[in-house]
């Protein structure tokens, strides 16, 4: 079994504040590729052939809320967070599968193999026949919410702590995984 149960205890709670990083109160770091005047402030470069200018176009989403690599970015990153799942699970496995595949939600298939998906990643564990592990729901919930509680250097995104998925969405994903025969 990969998820280690010994680490698991119920000290923490789920708070209602989801977002990970404090916003900037003043100006952005001077080296950010941003345009504060557009809705999605993050910019993407566009190389124009035979031109000495680099063009910048708005990126499809705003990435300024999360810590960057800029030395001027002094916002603390979100620390690992332990949570308690209140049962019953009440997750929707059909919705869970959609979330597992959706690019801007779980997108678990980048790293994991799930039934019926081609081009699966090989970074994470196989999630086929997940039911056979008999993991308790709260364990799976914590793994998705913030896997760093079990493995401090896990590369799996802390979906809950970083505000990528909300509590119900994680419940749906747990329900989906627990349904995989």
């Amino acid at each position: 079994m990969r998820i280690s149960r010994s680490f698991f205890c119920f000290f923490a709670f789920i708070s209602t504040a989801w977002l990970a990083t404090p916003a900037f109160s003043g100006d952005f770091p001077s080296d950010f590729a941003v345009d504060p005047a557009v809705v999605n402030m993050t910019l993407e470069p566009k190389v124009v052939v035979n031109s000495g200018k680099l063009e910048w176009v708005p990126f499809s989403r705003d990435l300024t809320p999360w810590v960057s690599l800029s030395y001027e970015d002094k916002r603390p990153a979100a620390r690992p967070r332990q949570v308690k799942l209140v049962e019953p699970l009440q997750g929707d496995p059909v919705r869970g599968r959609e979330l597992a595949i959706a690019r801007d939600k779980g997108y678990c298939i980048v790293c994991h193999q799930l039934p019926g998906e081609q081009w699966a990643g090989t970074v994470g564990a196989l999630l086929l026949n997940f039911k056979k592990h008999n993991y308790p729901n709260e364990l799976v919930f914590q793994q998705i919410f913030d896997s760093r509680v079990f493995n401090p250097i896990s590369v799996m995104p802390p979906y809950g702590t970083f505000g990528i998925l909300n509590e119900q969405e994680i419940r749906d994903l747990v329900a989906y995984l627990q349904s995989l025969d």
């Binding site: 080296d31 950010f32 590729a33 910019l43 993407e44 989403r61 999360w66 960057s68 690599l69």
Partner: peptide, 16 residues
């Protein structure tokens, strides 16, 4: 950076 949803920096920034 963009592929991993991280705010990019300008070319020539010190971190880059």
């Amino acid at each position: 950076n963009l592929a991993t949803r991280t705010q990019p920096l300008k070319p020539g920034s010190q971190a880059y």
